[in-house]
Amino acid sequence: MLLKDRQRPVAAVAHGVGLRLPATSKHLRVLREVGLVQVRRAGKQRLYGLDARGLQAVHDWTGGFEQFWSESFDRLNRYVKELRDREARGDGTDDH
């Protein structure tokens, strides 16, 4: 990730993602408005960096790997209970 380890001026970001300066500025402004990127003034330059708080929120919302397994485990739990109940009724574990 381009901005992961260090802050960069807009020109460096533009170069990194292969976009023209105005388009890059526009993207960075949107990302700043939604709290994913933060900007810091250093002399005449504006340096862009990731806003960890915003990214954490995205990560929490989207969940990823953990969310995948959390929901799979819920479904596994329901399914195993179903297998167990079927067995208790003497149906075996086959689908009927």
Binding site: E66, W69, S70, F73, L76, N77, V80, K81, L83, R84, E87, T93
Partner: peptide
């Protein structure tokens, strides 16, 4: 990750 499932291990 871990989770306790309501059923015996073999199932």
């Amino acid at each position: 990750l871990s989770r306790t499932i309501d059923g015996p291990r073999r199932l």
